[in-house]
Design a protein around this nucleic acid. Structure first.
Length: 417
RNA sequence: GGAGGGAUGCCCGAGUGGCUAAAGGGGGCGGGCUGUAAACCCGCUGGCUCACGCCUACGUAGGUUCGAAUCCUACUCCCUCCA
């Protein structure tokens, strides 16, 4: 492999982040000569981000670590329009207040991966509503619309595929591409942003922004995409038993986050270590030598590193400790999700299915009953025989808690107060 | 503007008057095997009670009928073709 000049490009390639780049040598040159500002766009339809967004976040982190300036572009303006890409269902339009509050909590997440501030390589967060809302249709068409050739737009995959399949492509969707290109131009003007990154599905949009910047202002700009991430068995990243794998602790506990990574498939561990941790490549190479059941050590490392990054070292240690106790020693881990129950309820006894429901292991009483019938419900690691089995004070262990389980992996504690 | 087709459970998708809480698949959950992996095999998969039963559900609102996801009317949205 040819060595590049800049740390940034080298790292990106070595760790497996690179899918396509508009001009890798020129970008390398630029990155080796000074600070490059680069951005990635994020949606702000939800108050949190999940693991699906982790790859772009890591991209920005790598960028900052190699001495450049990350820009987090929040799609406040585009969210108001509603991004029509992907599915045909139009999204719910959010009002400004909701968007702003979502932005706040998303920023919280970013602040754990990036350093924000006013310094030359400090990350900044910008909302594209700042300029998109001000746009005047006629002026916009005249100043920028003329730089877009419909002939060329039709040749982009996103458009071409739709047309070939004879699926409707609304004018709104057709324009979305232009707005995104315009974002790049605007960022280039405001803070000299020279690079847009994103998933491989964004390639067309990114290239448009690069082109527009060059045509309108004659400035050189770059685009770089990451590969589309799926697990070895082909599933999309980010979904699990309990739903989406959220990045903030109030939507998914650090323990569960740790578990998510711990349960990575064998074939993905090394790849994920490179993409989602800061571990040096030579350490990862050591882990790569493991085989068979030993791979579990690599998984623990992955889980620890990933959790530490998102939730801090204390949370990562606690999660690892709890997992060790729970799975390897068969004891109680202190970091399991815990729920309170009043002593008087326990005195009279509550039914097993109801308890499972109360700690959130089951969504309804019916589900809990089914779980028990299928032999998957446990109280203090003993299989629940009957759905009407009651749980009482006598089930409290010496620590004053009752352990409830759904299957072998999902556990919760009931604490008497 | 005209003609036709469609809207079903988390998703896809059968179902044209009672046997339909609704085939099948996917996904999910649980069990088995294992290494808290993958693959594979088995079971479950609307809510309440779980014994009967009750409630909610087939785009929305009405209607016909002993009885409707299935028939009628209006409305909404989507698609295809023609202009």
């Amino acid at each position: 492999m040819t060595k590049h000049k800049s740390d940034f490009i080298n790292t990106v390639i070595e760790r497996g982040y690179l899918h396509q780049c508009t001009d890798i040598d020129a970008l390398d040159e630029r990155a080796s000569n000074g600070v490059v500002s680069a951005y990635i766009g994020f949606d702000c339809t939800a108050p949190s981000l999940h693991v699906g967004s982790l790859l772009p976040i890591m991209m920005l982190r790598i960028l900052q670590q190699s001495g450049h300036k990350p820009i987090v572009l929040m799609g406040g303006g585009t969210t108001m329009v509603g991004d029509p890409s992907g599915k045909d269902e139009s999204r719910q339009l959010l009002d400004e207040k909701a968007i702003n509050s979502n932005m706040e909590s998303i920023k919280e997440i970013f602040s754990r991966f990036l350093t924000f501030g006013d310094g030359p390589t400090d990350a900044v967060m910008i909302n594209n509503a700042d300029w998109l809302k001000e746009l005047n249709y006629i002026e916009f068409l005249r100043d920028y619309g003329r730089h877009f050739s419909v002939n060329r737009m039709l040749s982009f995959d996103s458009v071409k595929l739709r047309l070939e399949r004879e699926q409707t492509l609304s004018f709104l969707e057709f324009n979305y591409m232009i707005l995104q290109a315009y974002d790049f131009l605007e960022l280039n003007r405001r803070i000299n942003c020279a690079l847009q990154m994103g998933g491989s599905d964004q390639w067309g949009n990114i290239v448009n922004g690069v082109e527009l910047t060059r045509r309108v202002d004659g400035k050189e700009a770059f685009g770089l995409t990451t590969p589309l991430l799926t697990t070895s068995s082909g599933a999309k990243m980010g979904k699990t038993a309990a739903g989406a794998v959220w990045l903030n602790a109030d939507m998914l506990s650090p323990y569960d986050y740790w578990q998510y990574w711990r349960n990575t498939e064998d074939g993905d561990v090394i790849r994920f270590l490179k993409l989602f941790t800061d571990l040096p490549l030579n350490e990862i190479a050591e882990l790569e030598k493991l085989s068979g059941a030993e791979i579990n050590e690599a998984k623990k490392k992955l889980a620890f590193e990933a959790t530490q990054m998102a939730h801090g070292i204390d949370a990562a240690n606690a999660a690892a400790e709890t997992a060790k106790k729970t799975f390897e020693e068969g004891k109680l881990g202190g970091d399991l999700p815990a729920f309170d129950i009043s002593r008087s309820d326990l005195e009279s006894g509550i039914q097993a299915f109801e308890a499972l429901c109360r700690v959130g292991l089951c969504a309804s009483n019916g589900e809990a009953r089914r779980l028990i019938k299928g032999g998957g419900g446990r109280v203090n690691d003993k299989q629940i025989k009957s759905e009407t089995e009651t749980i009482t004070l006598s089930d409290l262990n010496p620590d004053g808690v009752i352990k409830l389980s759904s299957g072998k992996k999902r556990h919760a504690l009931l604490r008497a107060i």
